[in-house]
């Protein structure tokens, strides 16, 4: 049987998820799943400990950031994307950063002891 190849096949293959050998990727997906499950358990467990509120926020925030990064990098395949997708994500992160900077005086003001 002969197979005709289209001239656009490399791009179509990329469109069809050219993120490495799917068989090998399955092991990665399962490892990430294990990590996410452990981190979820950890988030709930840390919350039952008698720690100060800032520490609890720091731990829960850090775990959430790690989980978000794992999902985006491996499940959404951001790790193997090109500059265009990274550009879109970077723009969005910059916008979020601007939002965070804009609300920081309110948060800082509360921690600093004054309220509007």
């Amino acid at each position: 049987m002969t197979t005709l190849r289209s001239p656009q096949e490399p791009q179509a293959a990329a469109a069809a998820g050219g993120h490495g050998d799917p068989k090998k990727m399955v092991r990665t997906y399962l490892a990430i799943f294990g990590a996410l499950a452990v981190l979820t358990f950890l988030t709930v467990w840390v919350n039952t400990l008698d720690v100060s509120r800032p520490v609890a926020i720091a731990i829960a925030g850090s775990i959430a950031i790690v989980k978000v990064a794992l999902i985006a990098m491996f499940f959404m395949h951001l790790k193997s994307e090109g500059r265009w997708i990274f550009g879109v994500v970077a723009l969005c992160l910059i916008a979020v950063l601007i939002l965070a900077v804009l609300i920081s005086p309110d948060i800082g003001g509360v921690f600093g002891g004054f309220r509007h």
Partner: peptide
């Protein structure tokens, strides 16, 4: 024989329109 599908069409960015559109939407 292969049939040309819209997703096969080359794009100026090298990224399929569907994928780029999905990422912009998620942004």
């Amino acid at each position: 024989p292969w049939i040309l599908d819209p997703s096969d069409e080359p794009t100026s960015t090298g990224v399929p329109h569907g994928k780029l559109g999905m990422w912009v939407f998620l942004a």
